[in-house]
Structures are given as C-alpha cells and as structure tokens.
Design a protein around this nucleic acid. Structure first.
Length: 690
DNA sequence: GCGATCAGGT
DNA sequence: CACACCTGATCGC
C-alpha cells in the first residue's frame, strides 16, 4: 500500500496520487492509475471546493485512467478539469501559482507501468532535474532499457530521483513468475476444464480492481469464450477489452462477483446466480489469482496450486518482484531512490539500504568507464547494423554512467543479443518463438514432475522424447550474474526433493482430492524468460482512433485461429491487446504533427498555453535550448514501434531443449483439471543440482 | 447524513 | 506471506 505522501522534493508544487492534506495546495495533480489507494482525497469536498476556486488547477493522467475515473459518478466533477496526456509524449505544463502569478515550467512524460489499464509512470523534467515517479508498476527485466524516453542520446537519462514502487522490494519476493507464465498456467487449466463439456465453467475469483483485464482478454482470445463480468461500461470506449467481456451469463468463463460468492460457490452457484444451463447443472472450478513468490535460489515456481476439490489459486502479480525492481532501478541508476511502499516486516531504512547500492552515489569511488544504460532499440534499430555498431563502438560522451558490476552482468543481452539479432534476425526470430513454446510446455512438464513427486514419492523417471529436442542453433541464453546460479535448461527438471521449502504450497490432503495427485503446476522462472514484454494485454494506455492502422497498428490484436495458435506465442502473449485503446477523435495525423493532444484542447483553448507537446527533450536542461543529440528522432514515430515489439529480439533460446508432445500435455491437463492421478516419470538427476 | 478511520473479510 | 478492495462499526461534524 502506497505511503507516498504526494509530493516530490524536487517539485513540491505538484501532487501525485495523493489529494489530501498538503496536497490541497498543489498547482497541478497527477494520477498514475485508478486504484483507490492512489486516489486518497480525490473526491473529498475540500478538494472539490479548491477546484471551484482555482480554475487553473488540473488533473493530469492517461486517457484510459480518465475514462475509468469518470465512469464513477463520484468523480464526475473532475470531468472538465482533467487533461489527458498521451503515453510517451513529452508534454510541457505550466505550473502557476494563482496567488502570486509565479510560474514554473515542467515537462512530463507518461511511461507505461504495466500495473493495470491506464497505469503510467511519470517522468518529470524541469529546472530541478529529472525525476521519475513510478506509481505502481510491473515491468519485466530489461523493460526500462527499451523505454525510449528514459533515454537521451542513446543512453539512459540523468535521473536525479526515482520514487519507486517497492511493494515487493524484499529478497523474500526475489522472483515472481512472469506474466506469461502465470497466464499460460491459467489458460491451460481453464482450457482443459471448459473443453470437457459446455457445462464445465470456470469462475475467476478476482478482486474488485482493475488489472485483471489482460487475463480476461487473453483467455477470451485463446479460448474463444467471452468473460462474464458484472460491469463493462467503463470499457465502452476500449474495444480491445470490451470485445472480450460480456454481461451475458451464458458463457463458460465468469469473473463476476458477489459479496457471498465463496458461499455461493460451495453450493455450485456462480456469483451471478447461475447454477445450470439447459437445466443441466454446471461443473465449476474457481481460480483465484493471487501473488506467489519465490526466493532467490528457488527454481521452481508453481503457478497454479490446487486448494480444494474444485478450487485453484493462480499466480498473478500487479507488482514487480524484487529482482525486477533491482533490474529497473539498477538500469535507471538515479542519484536518489525513495520507496513509495514499505513492505510489511521491513523498515524504511532497510528498504533504503536495498535501494542505495543501485543508485549512483554508492559507486562514486571507482570511476571506470562502462557503456551501460544503453537504449535497446526495437526492431527498427536493432536490424540496422550500422547504427548498432556506431552506438556500441563509439566512446560515449560524458556524463558517464558508472555502474556496479551487478548491472553489467545483469544485462548481458544488451551486448550479446543485439549482435546476434543483426547477424541472423530471421533465425533468431524463429528461435525465439520456438523457445517460447518450449518454455511454456516445459513448464507444464516440470509442474507435473513436481506434482507427482510432492505427493506420491514416485521414483519413476520422466522421459522426454529425444525427437522433441529443439533445434535452436547457436543462440545461447544469457548468463545470470555470477553470484547467482546460472539458469540452465536442466533446472527445469529438478527433482521435487530439491525444491526449497518456501516453494511448496499447501495442498489438499490426499483424501480430500481422492488420491495422491494434487495438480500443481510448476514452471521454472529463471528470470530471463521475462524478457518478453510484460506490457501485454490491456495494461497500457492509449487513446487511438479505433480504426487507425497507420501510426499505431491494431494488427497485433487480431484473433487468431486455433491452427495459428501454436506458432504465435509471442503474438498472443506479448502483444495481444497490448494497447488499451479508447476510441475517440484524435487521429494519428495530429499526433505526428506534434499538435497538442490534450483531450480538452478542443473545448478549452486556454490549455494550449499550458500544455504542449515538446518535440524533443534533451539533457540535462530540458527547458533550455540545449542541442539535441544525434540520436534524437521524431518521437512519435519511433516510440510506438518500440513499445509494441520491444523484446522480440531479446528472448534467449535454451540449448538442449526437448519438446513434449501436445497430446500428452493435453491429457495431463485434463487429468489435472479432474484431479486424477498423474504418473510422471522423473528425469535422471539434473546436471545443475545444487 | 456524510466522511474518516478501523477491524475484519475475501 | 500481499494486494485492493468491500462491508460494517464507531466516532465526529
């Protein structure tokens, strides 16, 4: 829970995600996303009164956040006072003190945060330096390096302070299975269940909060079944989400809610009241998304845990894990980092102790040139060998970013994968897709392995058909940092008795599920598989012209046939509904012409004076007329391509991979869903046993 | 009657 | 374990 008080030391006249107390005096407000704990005071009468008196005070947020906020009548009074800012569009704002007339200019850029629809991070640039407020975020390893606007001159910007989501900033939460792993676990469980008959339905026991939309959209897309929800009017202008939801209770996937839902479920009743279809009773399982985490040296990650005869818990996290936070902060390498959240059991000092080594000040003693913090360009640039060479080989201008060794080794792909990609882009791309498929399927195998061993002490061995061996060419997986175990393919097949205790979830007793097999889905998360963009599916925020295919193509969200499914893992999981879109009147042309994009523009001409898109922002004086570096590009054309396909070239393949057969997996899943016994043979002892 | 806060629930 | 809510009780205005 955020304990950020609303103000940043560098820019105390603006307030972010807090609207009470001192924040009542702010010259401008910012809302990172639409979760209640970030909206304290936002509908209070005191602020409402202030708004009525101070006509120059506005709330800035993403278009999706505005849409979600205004869906609630309690916040409608904000309607005329919200100014939306397009994502990845540096926008100048005048901060005016209405009493004195004093004015301060600031440039704000919204960066996708991957936390829930509309969620953003705010990058502020002004006379007191560049600061980043992350709000809540879930970004996979390496994602900061792909955010163009965190960079300038091909290098990460000089960031004074980061106000960071430290929800899981504790080694205890070292790793959380990636979005893709969690999604595929839920997907296959749901698939195996609902494919049994039209009377088999799944209830997703989700909380009342935004953030599950990408789960709904992906399940719907993959299974061809819309998800039943109580309300969908908030998504009325977001077709990418809307099309996957329904208020028709006659569907096999439900995410509806009711105060007595758990009680209902015990009586085979869905929260919406449905118990049968065509007078035939339904068979329902519940899947409850919840955060699961694993220690640093834990290799097993069971993304699905059976908690009862028909109940499952599925891994799901809105927030970055400890290692993701460290990757993010280490990459940004600010002068200061302030925690927005103090995890339970930790103190402020302790969190700061964790953050400090990732900041610049801690590494001032050993000044040694390291070409770190480089922008990992998307497809466009990565395939351009000339530019790539230039960027890598030329000594970079000051200020040099000196990083601790951790960061050097933590981003090997910056150096190795881009080189590979330009040599063999097509082959790599193939390998990536191949790897992704294997990664998912092997996860399932591992899960079953664990399931078996954790419950029945079976000594049988898992045999992998040699024919399924993947041909991954010479592409190798990046190495982990030296002091952490190196993820290897063998680790996927570790025996259960090697799993640290913390990774073992409680499972129903063997009597409860009528046998020894508690269906546990284990998948290995080596931290590198998360290079796939976590910005998939409805976590981002864009207003676009619904039909526009030009500047921000929607082609990545098309439904694919089942035949295509097996070859399209990256499409489905990485890009499916990547952009939450709101249909509205702003066209791509306007964007490209750097015309003011504030939604209020047309109705509020004054806003032109106070909000404007800044064509490019140089460092370190964004306001001044400092010359831009040669890497500066027309922002609005480059950023979209980048964010949508960011990680396609950075997914490592794994040597010695072995492909399980689809039919085999399917039958295992069906057994799993039914709670039947699964006999899985164990592989010979791993080469990587610890 | 409303809002803020807390406890307790999922 | 946490999260992001929800409900209900209590208090103060």
């Amino acid at each position: 829970m955020s304990s950020f008080q609303g103000q940043m030391t560098e820019y105390p006249t603006i307030s972010i995600d807090r609207f009470d107390r001192e924040n009542l005096k702010a010259r401008a407000y910012f809302l990172s996303h639409c979760h209640k704990d970030h909206m304290k005071g936002l509908r209070a009468p005191t602020l409402k009164r202030r708004l009525e008196c101070s006509l120059k005070v506005f709330l800035y947020c993403s278009p999706v956040t505005k849409e979600l906020l205004l869906t609630s009548p309690k916040y409608r009074f904000w309607e005329k006072r919200i100014r939306t800012i397009e994502i990845e569009t540096p926008t100048q704002i005048s901060l005016v003190d209405e009493a004195s007339g004093e004015k301060e200019e600031i440039v704000v850029t919204l960066l996708p945060a991957g936390h829930c629809p509309g969620s953003v991070m705010f990058l502020f640039q002004g006379n007191n330096g560049t600061v980043l407020y992350t709000g809540d975020f879930r970004l996979a390893k390496g994602e900061a390096s792909r955010m163009e606007l965190l960079h300038s001159g091909g290098r990460v910007k000089d960031i004074q302070s980061v106000y960071l989501d430290t929800t899981f900033c504790d080694p205890r939460f070292y790793q959380i299975p990636s979005r893709e792993e969690c999604l595929s676990g839920i997907l296959e469980l749901a698939r195996s269940w609902i494919s049994r008959s039209p009377y088999h339905v799944v209830w997703l026991n989700c909380k009342a909060a935004y953030g599950y939309e990408y789960l709904f959209t992906n399940l719907s897309e993959e299974l061809g079944v819309q998800v039943h929800v109580d309300k969908l009017d908030m998504f009325r202008n977001m077709p990418d989400i809307l099309h996957h939801l329904t208020t028709d209770r006659n569907t096999q996937i439900h995410a509806c809610r009711h105060p007595k839902a758990e009680e209902y479920f015990q009586w085979s009743k869905l929260p919406c009241g449905v118990t049968s279809k065509n007078k035939i009773p339904l068979h329902t399982i519940s899947i409850k998304p919840s955060t699961m985490w694993f220690g640093e040296r834990t290799r097993k990650t069971n993304v699905i845990v059976r908690t009862g005869e028909s109940s499952y818990r599925a891994c799901f996290s809105f927030h970055s894990s400890y290692s993701e936070i460290k990757d993010f902060l280490g990459y940004i390498c600010p002068a200061n980092a302030y925690p927005n959240v103090i995890p339970v059991g930790l103190t402020v000092d302790k969190v700061i102790d964790i953050l400090k080594p990732l900041c610049r000040s801690s590494q001032s003693t050993e000044l040694k040139y390291k070409p770190l913090g480089k922008l990992k360009r998307a497809r466009q640039t990565q395939l351009d060998s000339e530019e790539e060479d230039e960027l890598f080989d030329d000594p970079l201008p000051t200020p040099l970013r000196h990083k601790v060794p951790y960061q050097l080794t933590c981003h090997p792909e910056v150096f190795s994968m881009t080189r590979l990609s330009k040599k063999q882009p097509e082959k790599l791309q193939q390998s990536i897709e191949c790897y992704k498929i294997e990664s998912m399927q092997s996860s399932l195998l591992t899960n079953f392995l664990d399931c078996e061993e954790s419950n029945s002490e079976s000594e049988e061995e898992l045999e992998i058909p040699p024919s399924a061996q993947g041909d991954l060419g010479s592409v190798t997986a990046p190495q982990e940092k030296a002091d952490v175990e190196v993820p290897q393919w063998e680790a996927f097949f570790r025996r259960n008795d090697e799993i640290p205790e913390e990774s073992l979830e409680n499972v129903p007793s063997s009597t409860e599920i009528g046998g020894s097999q508690s269906p546990k889905l284990f998948s290995d998360s080596d931290g590198e598989s998360t290079h796939i963009s976590s910005q998939n599916s409805s976590q981002s925020t864009h207003i676009t012209d619904q039909g526009s295919q030009g500047w921000d193509s929607q082609s990545d969200t098309v439904l694919l046939s089942s035949q295509e499914r097996n070859n399209r893992e990256t499409t489905s999981l990485d890009k499916g509904a990547y952009r939450t879109k709101i249909k509205e009147s702003i066209s791509g042309c306007q964007m490209e012409q750097n015309i003011l994009v504030s939604q209020e523009t047309h109705s509020d001409l004054k806003s032109k004076d106070e909000v404007s898109i800044v064509p490019s922002v140089g460092e370190p004086t964004p306001m001044g007329g400092e010359k831009h570096t040669l890497e500066e590009k027309p922002m609005l054309t480059s950023t979209h391509a980048d964010s949508q396909s960011s990680s396609d070239f950075e997914i490592p393949s794994t040597p010695e991979t072995e492909l399980p057969k689809q039919e085999h997996l399917q039958s295992l899943y069906e057994k799993l869903a039914m709670g039947e016994s699964i006999v899985v043979k164990k592989r010979k002892s791993s080469l990587l046993d610890i």
